[in-house]
Design a protein around this nucleic acid. Sequence first.
DNA 1: AAATGAGATGCAACAGAAGTGCATTCTTTT
DNA 2: AAAAGAATGCACTTCTGTTGCATCTCATTT
Lengths: 144, 144
Amino acid sequence: MPNTVINTMEEIEEILEERGVRPTTMRLLIYKFLSEKRVALSLKDLENKFDRSDRTTLFRTLKTFEDKGIVHQIDDGSGVNKYAVCALECNCEIENDLHLHFHCNTCNETTCLTDHKIPQISLPAGYSAENVNLVVKGVCEKCS
Amino acid sequence: MPNTVINTMEEIEEILEERGVRPTTMRLLIYKFLSEKRVALSLKDLENKFDRSDRTTLFRTLKTFEDKGIVHQIDDGSGVNKYAVCALECNCEIENDLHLHFHCNTCNETTCLTDHKIPQISLPAGYSAENVNLVVKGVCEKCS
DNA sequence: AAATGAGATGCAACAGAAGTGCATTCTTTT
DNA sequence: AAAAGAATGCACTTCTGTTGCATCTCATTT
């Protein structure tokens, strides 16, 4: 979830270290960029922003962040993976952090609607859920 | 949705013609194959089945079917697009055909749970929904 | 401070899926 | 049968994601 709070570099450094990620300059900048955006970002978005850094570095940074629970990946159906920083309490667990995502067909932006939890879903007998992905597509506030 | 009913070739021919799709031999076979499967199929699945036909033909057949409302596309988060034949009454409209999809992490199969409609979702002011995609991941009946 | 070593970064190359242009073949219509 | 239009097949391109390996950076140890 994109934080509305802007973190200082010192705070970001703490966040990364808490999760066992070495706070390099690039990682701090990438985290800062992600956390300032209200929307989920793709690798391409990072490439455009950090054009002096290599694709691979950005790619691996996202993977590292994901592995360590710093960002979560979003599949909004656009065909490219997007990422948003997790809320503080978020453990990306099925019980407590399954919010829905809204994908705007006009501006192509994907927003985390953290306040909108996914309703309880009943499954047929024999099926067990581990994860739920709910993406609503339409027109966002900005574009309507 | 994969029909449980097996259609005769004559019936399939009617279905295609009703939708304005010329019922060529390949298209009949592809529809038949799709409709006999309980699960959504990828382009690769069709390639494996119809190895004497060209990828492009299969690709374009799926696109044509999708455009004409004969199949619906499913993004189950596996990274590849999958397709399943629509139910008879399905117009892929938000009001009446939004069922959920279940993706099994073990067998990698995606099933349409047509009986499980997507619950009503409330959106913040200014947002309007055109489409909803709900994929539950976990372990299916067969694999549990 | 210099050496060491682990981790981070950059470059190149690859893999898989999706998509397009064009020539050829098939079907339907006249 | 000829013509027109649609379907198919082949080759090629693009885009995203991914990996291997060499190099660089930084923290730690001596």
